[in-house]
């Protein structure tokens, strides 16, 4: 039987309320301060390094984001680390807190469908994250203009925008993961721990896990002659199950135009051509990471569908 009325009734109201809640929450203000301070620090460190280099560089602006001064990470690697945490902070109690506050049945007894509440909450968190990242991106561009004294080229702006989009997609994946746990577990502390555990797994241990998996069935010869082509491909396939890898590869290709491939080709001739070649044009870089891009987007959609199904089936009584 079809239900009457639009599933979007009340969505805008939920979106507005949740966004205001997020933006004014102490949680978000602390995180924003943390991000802005570290970002400025990373960029200034990069500027310090770049001043010592005298060679002409057509992608000066992008270096701002990728150059690191040891032991501090570059802005990009810092972002890859911190974006999941911010997304988790906004999503881990999205659903279960409505239960523990006992507001869920009251809200759902208003003339709205659950769809509106869930989509509104997800979009509100994503909007908050996007606002933060856009502000950050503009802030860094401004810093670059002042300190470097040259405007970014059109291609640099394009690459920067793609990077921004990928960051939002990456945040969306982690937001959906956090919301999934918030639908799965009743206690906000449990869902926060579960999200952080998964984040730790992907951020720190995933490469080890991928390495171990690829060595299943390895023969003694492999230890002598190195891994076979098959094993390398398996390892890469497993690594790419992690959103962190996908995001890392997108940023690498977008912000470092010289990136032509993500695997070392075994054929020496191909190796020369690929690695030592000229920077790729913008559209070729986009093509290179298109699978990673769609992968992130697909991740968001699949995870959100899981959250949706979990939430729709949940009884309203705690």
């Amino acid at each position: 039987m079809r239900r009457k009325g639009s599933p979007w009734t009340g969505m805008a109201t939920v979106l507005t309320k949740e966004t205001i809640d997020h933006i004014t929450s102490a949680r978000m203000i602390v995180l924003e301060l943390l991000i802005v301070i570290t970002a400025i620090g990373a960029v200034f460190a990069a500027i310090g390094v770049m001043r010592t280099v005298t060679t002409e560089d057509p992608f000066l602006f992008l270096r701002l984001l990728t150059v690191a001064r040891e032991p501090f990470p570059s802005f990009v690697s810092f972002l890859g680390f911190v974006v999941p945490i911010v997304a988790i902070a906004l999503g881990f109690d999205a659903i279960n807190a409505e239960y523990s506050r006992r507001t869920l049945s009251r809200i759902l007894s208003q003339p709205i469908y659950r769809d509106a509440l869930l989509v509104g909450k997800f979009l509100a968190a994503l909007l908050t994250l996007s606002l933060t990242f856009v502000a950050l991106w503009l802030l860094i561009t401004g810093l670059g203009l002042i300190t470097l004294g040259v405007p970014p080229s059109g291609e640099e702006v394009g690459r920067g925008l793609m990077f921004l989009l990928a960051t939002i997609g990456y945040a969306g994946v982690w937001l959906a993961i956090a919301m999934m746990f918030s639908a799965l577990f009743r206690a906000p502390a449990t869902s926060a721990m579960a999200s952080l555990a998964l984040w730790l797994l992907f951020a720190v241990f995933w490469s080890i896990v991928a390495g171990l998996i690829s060595q299943i069935g390895a023969t003694p010869e492999d230890l002598v002659f190195g891994p076979t082509q098959q094993q390398v491909e398996l390892e890469q396939w497993v690594t790419r199950l992690s959103p962190n890898t996908l995001y890392g590869e997108v940023t690498l290709a977008m912000l470092n135009p010289a990136t032509r491939a993500f695997t070392m080709p075994t054929d020496a001739a191909v190796f020369d051509r690929i690695v030592l070649g000229q920077p790729l044009p913008f559209d070729q870089s986009v093509l290179l990471v298109w699978p990673q891009f769609t992968g992130l987007l697909a991740g968001v959609l699949i995870l959100f569908t899981v959250v949706y199904l979990l939430f729709q089936r949940q009884e309203i009584r705690a």
């Binding site: 009457k4 009325g5 506050r101």
Partner: peptide, 24 residues
């Protein structure tokens, strides 16, 4: 109410047991 919950909920008000609000 299964077919047309929105109209039902527009005309019926509900106060759940141990009603909760947004504390902030």
């Amino acid at each position: 109410p299964t077919h047309d919950p929105l109209e039902v909920k527009r005309r019926v008000a509900y106060m759940p047991d141990t009603v909760g609000f947004y504390d902030g």
